[in-house]
C-alpha cells in the first residue's frame, strides 16, 4: 500500500504526475525517429533543410484536419467528412473571391464559417437526430463533395474563362509563403495544434471532451451536457477543415471539388498514430502532431526514393497499421506491469 498524499506538494509531484503523459508520446516519437533514420539512409537528400521545410509544408493541411479530428475522437466520435468539407469551404470561398470579387479576408472568414456550419450540421444530426457518428459524417462527406462540385461546376477555380480576378496574393501567401523561414502553412498548423492543445488542457469544454469519450454515462452523472460537448467538437472539426481548405487553396493556387479526397483517412491515421484511443477519452494533441509529421515524412521519403504512387498507398496502409499494433502491444505490456 502506498502512503496517503499530503496537502504539501512540491514541483516534484507535478513532474511525477505529468510523467505519464509524456510516456504516452514515447511510442509515436520512436516510430517517427525510426522512419527518419531509415529514410535518411536510403536517400541522404531527405535531411537537407530545403526538403525538411517541404515536409512541413506537405504535412500542414493534414495536421490542421487532424487537430479537429483529435477533438472529435476524444469524445468517442469520428468525422469522415473533413476532406469533403475542406473542399466545399475552399471552393465556396475561392468562387466568391475570384468570380464575384468579394474582399479576400471576408472570403477567408466565409471559408472558415462554411466549415464550421458543416460541423454544426454533423453535430446536430448526431446529437438531436440520434444518428451514429459514422453515418452522419459519411452522409456529410458525400453531401459536401456534391455541393462543392455544384459550386465549382466541376472545374478548378479560378477558371479563367469567367473569373473576374486571379487568386489573390494573400491566399497564395497562406499556402506557399514563409514566416521566419518556416513555410506559412506549417506555421498555421502549429498554431492550430497549439490552440487545440490549450483548449483541451485548460478549458472546461476541453476537459469534457475527454470525459464524454471516456464514459458518456458517467459524464452525464457528473453534470456534463454530453450533447453540447459533442456538438462543440464537431463544430471545431468543421471549422478547422475550413482553415485547412483556405491553406490548401493557397498552396495549390486554386480550389476544386476534388481537393482532399481521402484526407479524412490521413487525419484519422495521424490521430491514431499519435496514440489516441479510437474509442475516446485518451490521447494528446502532441501525439497528433507527431502522427501528422510522420505521415508526411513517409510520403516525402517514398517520393524521394521514386516509389510509384501505387506502392506508396500500399506502404502507407502497412505503416499506419504497424505503428498502431506496436503501440497497442507497448501499452498492453505497460498496463500488465502496473
Amino acid at each position: 500500500m502506498s502512503k496517503p498524499v499530503t496537502t504539501n506538494f512540491s514541483i516534484l509531484d507535478i513532474i511525477k504526475e505529468r510523467k505519464s503523459s509524456f510516456k504516452n508520446l514515447a511510442g509515436p516519437l520512436l516510430g517517427m525517429f525510426i522512419l527518419v533514420f531509415l529514410i535518411s539512409i536510403a536517400t541522404p537528400f531527405f535531411m537537407s533543410s530545403a526538403n525538411l521545410l517541404n515536409v512541413g509544408r506537405q504535412a500542414a493541411t493534414n495536421i490542421i484536419l487532424a487537430a479537429g479530428m483529435t477533438l472529435v475522437i476524444f469524445t468517442g466520435g469520428i468525422d469522415l467528412s473533413v476532406g469533403s468539407v475542406m473542399a466545399l469551404a475552399a471552393s465556396v470561398a475561392v468562387v466568391l473571391i475570384t468570380h464575384f470579387g468579394i474582399n479576400v479576408w471576408l472570403g477567408v472568414l466565409i471559408c472558415i464559417l462554411v466549415g464550421a456550419a458543416c460541423g454544426l450540421i454533423n453535430g446536430l444530426v448526431i446529437t438531436k437526430g440520434r444518428v451514429p457518428d459514422f453515418i452522419a459524417t459519411l452522409g456529410m462527406m458525400s453531401l459536401a463533395r456534391g455541393l462543392a462540385l455544384l459550386v465549382t461546376e466541376g472545374m478548378a477555380v479560378p477558371s479563367f474563362a469567367i473569373a473576374v480576378r486571379e487568386m489573390p496574393e494573400e491566399i497564395i501567401a497562406l499556402g506557399a509563403g514563409h514566416l521566419l523561414g518556416i513555410p506559412a502553412p506549417f506555421f498555421i498548423s502549429l498554431v492550430v495544434i497549439l490552440i487545440t492543445w490549450f483548449v483541451s488542457q485548460n478549458t472546461r469544454t476541453g476537459r469534457y471532451f475527454f470525459a464524454v469519450g471516456g464514459n458518456k454515462e458517467a459524464a452525464r452523472v457528473s453534470g456534463i451536457n454530453v450533447e453540447k460537448t459533442k456538438l462543440t467538437a464537431y463544430i471545431l472539426s468543421g471549422l478547422f477543415a475550413g482553415v485547412a481548405g483556405i491553406v490548401l487553396a493557397g498552396r495549390l493556387n486554386s480550389a476544386n471539388a476534388h481537393m482532399g479526397v481521402g484526407a479524412e483517412l490521413n487525419a484519422i491515421a495521424s490521430v491514431v498514430m499519435g496514440g489516441a484511443n479510437l474509442f475516446g477519452g485518451e490521447g494528446a494533441l502532441g501525439g497528433t502532431l507527431i502522427g501528422g509529421i510522420t505521415i508526411a515524412i513517409l510520403n516525402n521519403g517514398l517520393n524521394l526514393m521514386a516509389v510509384s504512387a501505387f506502392w506508396q498507398e500500399v506502404a502507407m496502409g502497412i505503416v499506419v497499421v504497424a505503428v498502431v499494433v506496436f503501440d497497442q502491444w507497448r501499452r498492453h505490456r505497460f498496463s500488465e506491469k502496473k
Binding site: 475527454f210 471516456g214 464514459n215 458517467a218 452523472v221 485518451e282
Partner: peptide, 11 residues
C-alpha cells in the same frame, strides 16, 4: 457508471 475510470482522481 458514475466515475470516468480512465481519468484522474482530481478530474
Amino acid at each position: 457508471m458514475g466515475l470516468v475510470l480512465r481519468m484522474s482522481i482530481a478530474y
